[in-house]
Amino acid sequence: MRALVAGLVLVVAACSTPESGGTAPSKAPAPTGLKIEEVAGGFQHAWDIGFLPDGSMLVTERPGRVKLVRNGQVTPVDIDLTDVQVRGEGGLMGLVIHPDNQRFTICYNTVRDVRLVTFRLEGAKATKTKDLVTGMPSNPSGRHSGCRPTLAPDGTMFVATGDIAQARNPQDRTSLGGKVLRIDPETGEGAKDNPFANSANANERRIYTYGHRNVQGVVFRPGTDQIFSAEHGPDVDDEVNLLRKGANYGWDPSKGGTQSRYDEDVPMTDLQRFPDAVAAVWSSGTRTEAICQAAFWNGKLAITALKGTKLLLFTLDDAGKVQNVSIPDELNDRYGRLRAARTAQDGSLYITTSNGTDDKLLRLTGGV
């Protein structure tokens, strides 16, 4: 049934209705004056980007490599990642550089778990300093691994995780799967003012929001306290969510714990089972975009799409409601699958392709 529905083709405006109903945002004209520079190529499933103060960048590759990009030249980082398990959607994933510009934290699958590990960078060599968080659940197939860390303006670290396609994880607050975590970037413990900070369970103390399926990125709207996430739906209903501290986002393939089977026919936001769950501010509806990382660029919320092979630009009102969506022609099925999206200090937007061979690091300017 869902496969039939997913086969229907609708324009972006028609498939942008939030799950709570209401008026669909309009399809906006694409931005003009967009310039795309191919900064570097030759990557394999380039997963995330981190900026260094000298203008160079670190790029992670899912097969378990970190590359240093400086002036268009790509140098492999000397780093021990022999414990990375690369399978399916799993492997080396997200990256975030610490404020000291010397350390970075990456997220990856091992044979036992998904974990956050911090390294210190010296030149093109990285040395491990800390297992920041271990024990995040991992599917042997790599399915729904998440996992992307991002530093918040208040200095905490937000971590987007996947539910690893296990039915009970999203609603189980003792599991780190299917969550957005908020942790201390030095200790890996839950931030002291988290919603469940008084819990006896260390995992629950790390949780900021729960009831997610496979969160691909978290971003903070400049000048506000608004936090947005991008999340994969099953074969429909990819979601953009406005995160609220301690909130449930309503994904429950266990149907209230009544079954162990991973039932993907449940709603992405099950408002009947969870009346207080937070509905998405945007849903792809019957399309499968497989939206990925989110970044704010030129005042808009920019989100990459894997299956959709495009960049989506969301115009938001002051409350965070989506007003319209535009798709730049220059990135609409021109480069294939788009994954990473990070805004540089100079205001340009960097994105990566994720096609598996000769993937690109792209720099976007203009587009206003």
Rank of each mutant, 00 (worst) to 15 (best):
L4W: 14
G246P: 12
V236K: 15
R287N: 13
V114P: 00
K192D: 11
N194V: 01
L132T: 12
Y108W: 08
D270Q: 08
A280M: 00
L68S: 01
S260N: 15
W251P: 04
Q259D: 02
V69Q: 05
A46P: 13
D265G: 06
S20A: 14
Q259C: 07
Q85A: 14
G356I: 10
Q166R: 14
V114E: 03
V218P: 11
L176Q: 11
S283F: 11
D113S: 12
P195S: 03
Q226I: 06
M136W: 01
W297G: 01
G190N: 04
G91H: 12
E61M: 12
K307T: 10
N194H: 05
G88C: 10
A200E: 15
F296P: 06
G21E: 08
V114C: 09
A46W: 13
G55W: 13
D48K: 01
P53D: 10
P25S: 03
G250R: 06
T118H: 09
R115G: 06
P18Q: 04
E289S: 07
V266H: 02
S354V: 04
P31W: 07
G190K: 03
L243H: 09
V66P: 13
K245W: 05
D172Q: 13
S283E: 11
A167G: 07
N71V: 03
N241S: 11
L92N: 07
A197Y: 03
T60E: 06
T269W: 10
T258K: 15
T75V: 14
A295Q: 03
V74K: 05
D100Q: 06
T127E: 14
D318I: 00
Y108G: 00
D131P: 12
T286K: 13
D163T: 05
S254E: 04
L364E: 09
M268Q: 14
T110Q: 08
V133H: 05
H98T: 10
L4H: 14
T75M: 07
G123Q: 08
H144R: 03
L176A: 15
G94C: 03
L331A: 03
R363P: 12
L311V: 10
V39M: 07
R65I: 00
L52S: 04
T32L: 11
R2W: 05
G64V: 08
A200C: 00
V218C: 04
A152N: 09
L364C: 08
I227Q: 05
G72H: 08
Q259L: 12
A165I: 01
Y335H: 13
R337Q: 10
L81A: 03
H232N: 11
L338T: 12
E231A: 07
T174D: 08
R363Y: 04
V59P: 12
E231D: 06
G366M: 11
A302R: 08
D225G: 13
D252M: 06
R62E: 04
G90D: 07
T150H: 12
M136Y: 00
D113Q: 12
R206S: 12
R244D: 00
L81K: 09
E89M: 06
P63H: 02
R182C: 01
R339L: 02
K130E: 02
V219L: 00
T357P: 00
I164E: 11
Y108A: 01
R334F: 04
N241Y: 07
G91T: 07
G90S: 09
D235W: 10
S326F: 10
G41W: 08
N241M: 01
R148S: 00
R65V: 02
E231P: 12
V9F: 11
F274I: 01
A30W: 02
